[in-house]
Design a protein around this nucleic acid. Structure first.
Lengths: 244, 244
DNA sequence: TTACTTATTGTCAATGTGACGATAAGTATC
DNA sequence: GATACTTATCGTCACATTGACAATAAGTAA
């Protein structure tokens, strides 16, 4: 009975953001260095308290903007899941609602001030243990990466890691970085260009450092519209990661 | 900065549960009739406040047990997502963490007391508008059903709607009820029995009202173990719902 | 025994995928 | 300019999976 007599417990609620991007062909995550206890000096996910009368995703977006100094953070932001409130913060019970941002690389505010500053770190360095994260952020990052891997399979959100326009090879690099596998360029090209409603040819070309120029694509309107949908409206059948 | 000076807002946190089951070939959801304002007399999802030092899923399980009178609620329970805290309860900002239970049919405590009593309602009656739900529970139910549909595709959790042992036809009835489509019995049989690590033949037979007796299966150990995993370790390639 | 029902096994064509050859179209080098 | 090198794009082929559907198995009811 939600309306019972003893006053219900109230919890501070935070939003944390796992912001992922591709840098140099490797998956990177946005982390801040904590300046205060607990976990002072340790890396942590950006985030902060939810204000009253604030939507969760909006709170995540606001915190991200505050901690990166970037007004309009690009990319696709969605809720990942909630953690706690018990036993995750030594100061007390705090519930956190984790979010996932899949974004093209964007520059974060230069470090050097006394504020907690954000920077991109290779996800692999967290996974292999060479980087420690505060609180239960390691677990949250794990879940976020798994979610991202899964999203690529059945949604067009791989393109969220690219800019507005991109080549097939750039899109493939996203898949390779997130999944941590190599994909056959020819088969990937076939699937990407052969899926109706996924990509739209811009008619322009992109010159890389070497090799034949590549055609530039953007997301087709149908794929753009399905961004929020949980259903795999576009990538059907899905583009499955190799299961080895 | 999560540790800044003004005391952070604190919110009451509830867990709500979308408990789904199959009854008479149709998807049903467990609902309670509210006895108190707001939404007095309206149907709502079972749920209640999270106690301090309590895990979210544990809280959901506890509330479910309290409101159904069932000690050990069967089935698979997982977190669905969080809603709020702004603008969902007229009494103030309440954050709710919704959960999804996929369970075989279990009897709920008989009605008649003055306590809020739970009962199974056809999901279709909510979808078509003949049943109204309190708060934003209609939205939560929508999300839960979509999640369940999706889960059937790439996880062995369809079996969570069945008992310990079940026939292929019973499992197929689950898929048909959740997806709201008819499936070819022969093709479903082939996929279910032909997927390594999914089902295990018990060697026993099940006599229905009519027709040839069916073999009884249970989940294979591999499928049982993958219950919590987000990855489609078992149903690979997935068993996709018809997209028409 | 016949009719009827559901379970289970096959068959076949269409589709999608993995592996990989061949060609196109740039840049750098001789 | 010719050649080497790089990446993009198009094709081919065998194989796996699926959707549609025939055929058979094994019960119950009449």
């Amino acid at each position: 009975m939600p309306d019972s007599y003893p006053a219900p417990a109230r919890f501070p609620v935070t939003v944390d953001v796992v912001a992922l991007t591709i840098l140099g062909g490797a998956l990177h995550v946005l982390l801040i260095t904590r300046l205060l206890e607990p976990f002072r000096g340790t890396l942590a996910l950006p985030g902060g308290f939810v204000l009253a009368a604030e939507d969760l995703v909006a709170a995540a977006r606001r915190e991200l903007a505050e901690e990166t100094g970037v007004e309009q953070v690009p990319g696709h932001l969605e809720q990942l899941g909630s953690y706690g409130p018990a036993g995750r913060d030594p100061r007390g019970d705090v519930l956190t609602v984790a979010h996932l941002l899949m974004a093209p690389n964007f520059p974060v505010l230069a470090a050097g001030s006394d504020a907690e500053h954000a920077a991109w770190y290779p996800v692999g360095n967290v996974m292999d243990g060479s980087l420690e994260l505060a609180f239960d952020h390691r677990q949250i990052l794990d879940d976020a990466v798994e979610r991202a891997k899964s999203k690529l399979e059945y949604s067009p959100l791989g393109a969220a890691f690219c800019g507005e326009e991109f080549t097939i090879a750039q899109l493939r690099a996203v898949y390779e970085a997130v999944w941590g596998t190599r994909l056959d360029p020819r088969n990937f090209h076939r699937k990407a260009t052969g899926t109706p409603g996924f990509l739209e040819d811009t008619g322009q070309m992109f010159m890389g450092d070497a090799g034949r120029p590549a055609a530039l694509f953007r997301l087709a309107p149908a794929a753009r519209a399905s961004a929020g949908q949980p259903t795999r409206a576009v990538l059907n059948p899905p583009l499955m990661r190799p299961h080895g």
